[in-house]
Structure formats: structure tokens, C-alpha cells
């Protein structure tokens, strides 16, 4: 669609008030815009040293890099779980820096879905309840939450495991429940932090297939991964090193350029 943009060059479109996209405009609107984002901690620790990144609607990208390269931090910043020390962050069209904690919570509830390496499912509750919780803070009535949770579980092909508790599910199934929880709110953006890190290869492939399906249905998906094979199979790869983007490469039609 578009030639890969060098990481250091600022993206052209985003501004304080982006103009509504016209139907004739082939460029999808940005879902994530990071501009010169710096994140440092006390004691001169710099996790991000000026990161600019634009992710457009419908993209599926891998964030790769060695441990400590800043890729987890950038995911937390994109997910509004962590605030940058400097720079601007826009997610789903909202300028995150100007929002209160409560507004950020609402943003996460409605526009962002998370998938974690260790699933983070509630042990004592069945798959349906775990998935329905994904809608709890979005103000969806209980009945509708459960109906949509059931549909989401069908979507990750766990319709037969609705009443199972996490302890009764395999690792791959747990991660599929977690994906169902992330997608049940129909977010604009799904952030997956090493979603296959705790899974065997076969389960990992199922999980990646689901994320691809999700992306094919229109959701923007960012995946942090250590796995080069997985990263290579995704259309866009952003490589972090020492808190900056070292490479940002795209594949056309699923093949390396």
C-alpha cells in the first residue's frame, strides 16, 4: 500500500486536529501516534529515548527487540497504562496527555484490548465470566455482556468451553479466552504482550492465527514478540533497541520486501 517510512522521519498526517478522512483518501486514519516520546525513570534510566511511531487503522505489526530495549514500555505507553515523560501520544484520536486517569480508564475500556503473556484470568471464574469482565467497565448491561462474551468465545472457537474455569483449560485455551476478553469490546486496537511466550508452538500458532483473523476483520493489532518467525510472518515489524526504533520494515503481501 505505502512504501515503508524510515523510523526517524516524522509521520506526515497527525496533528492536534486531524481532518476527517475522506472516502477517497486511501490512507487509513492513525490509531496510534507517538511523537518524540521519552520515558525515563528515576536514576537516569531511559526506557524510551525519543520514539515516533504511527500505526494506522487495520495494521498488524510486530514490536521486536531484545530485553530492555523499551518494547514493553512502548506498549504500556500506547496502552495508556504508563504515561510518557515527554512527547505526545494519541490513541484512537485522543490526546492522551491531556486526559485524566478516569478518562484514560474509559479509553482503555472502550478502545483498547489487552492480551498478556500470562493470560491474567481470574482463577475462580469460568471462561464466560472472564470474557464478560472485558465489558464490565464499558457500561454494558450484564445480560448483554454475557451474550457478547458467549459470541466472543465462539469467535475464538471455545464455544464448548464456556463453563470451564482456567484451571480446566490448556495454556492455548487460556490465551484464547484472554483474546476473547480483549476483542469482546470491539476495540480499535489490540495490544498483545508476548501472547505466545508461555505457549508451545502449536498453541502459539493458533493464537497468532486468531490475532490475524481479528486483524483481517478490521482491528489494529500490535504484538510484542521475541519469536523471529512470528515477527517475520507479520506485515510490519518495528525493531527497538536501547529505547529507540532501530528499524521499521514492511512486507508486501505477506512476503519480505
Amino acid at each position: 500500500m505505502r512504501p515503508p517510512a524510515p523510523a526517524s522521519v516524522p509521520e506526515p498526517t497527525p496533528g492536534p486536529d486531524p481532518t476527517p478522512t475522506l472516502a477517497s483518501d486511501p490512507t487509513p486514519p492513525p490509531v496510534v501516534e507517538l511523537r518524540d516520546v521519552i520515558k525515563s525513570y528515576a536514576g537516569d534510566v531511559h526506557a524510551l529515548r525519543g520514539v515516533s511511531l504511527t500505526v494506522r487503522a487495520g495494521e498488524l505489526l510486530a514490536i521486536v527487540g531484545p530485553s530492555g530495549s523499551g518494547k514493553s514500555t512502548v506498549l504500556n505507553v500506547i496502552g495508556t497504562l504508563d504515561a510518557p515523560t515527554a512527547g505526545t501520544v494519541r490513541v484512537a484520536g485522543y490526546d492522551v496527555s491531556r486526559m485524566s486517569d478516569a478518562q484514560l480508564s474509559a479509553l482503555r475500556a472502550r478502545h483498547i484490548g489487552f492480551v498478556f503473556q500470562h493470560f491474567h484470568l481470574a482463577a475462580g471464574r469460568d471462561a464466560l465470566d472472564n470474557v464478560a469482565d472485558g465489558l464490565l467497565y464499558g457500561g454494558v448491561p450484564r445480560k448483554e455482556r454475557r451474550d457478547r462474551a458467549r459470541a466472543a468465545l465462539e469467535r475464538v472457537r471455545l464455544g464448548h468451553r464456556v463453563g470451564h474455569r482456567p484451571a480446566e483449560l490448556s495454556g492455548g485455551e487460556k490465551q484464547r479466552v484472554a483474546i476473547a476478553r480483549a476483542l469482546v469490546g470491539e476495540p480499535d486496537l489490540v495490544l498483545a504482550d508476548e501472547p505466545t511466550g508461555a505457549l508451545d508452538t502449536a498453541s502459539g500458532e493458533v493464537v497468532m492465527d486468531l490475532l490475524r483473523e481479528l486483524n483481517a476483520a478490521g482491528t489494529t493489532v500490535c504484538v510484542i514478540t521475541h519469536d523471529h518467525e512470528i515477527a517475520g510472518s507479520l506485515p510490519r515489524r518495528v525493531r527497538f533497541r536501547d529505547g529507540v526504533i532501530a528499524a521499521d520494515s514492511r512486507t508486501r503481501e505477506g512476503k519480505p520486501v
Binding site: 497504562l81 480508564s105 474509559a106 482503555r108 475500556a109 464490565l136 467497565y137
Partner: peptide, 8 residues
């Protein structure tokens, strides 16, 4: 997790 899925 609850904060991530939108709990204030």
C-alpha cells in the same frame, strides 16, 4: 488487569 480493561 482490571485497570487495563478499563477500571478507574
Amino acid at each position: 488487569l482490571r485497570r487495563a480493561i478499563g477500571a478507574t
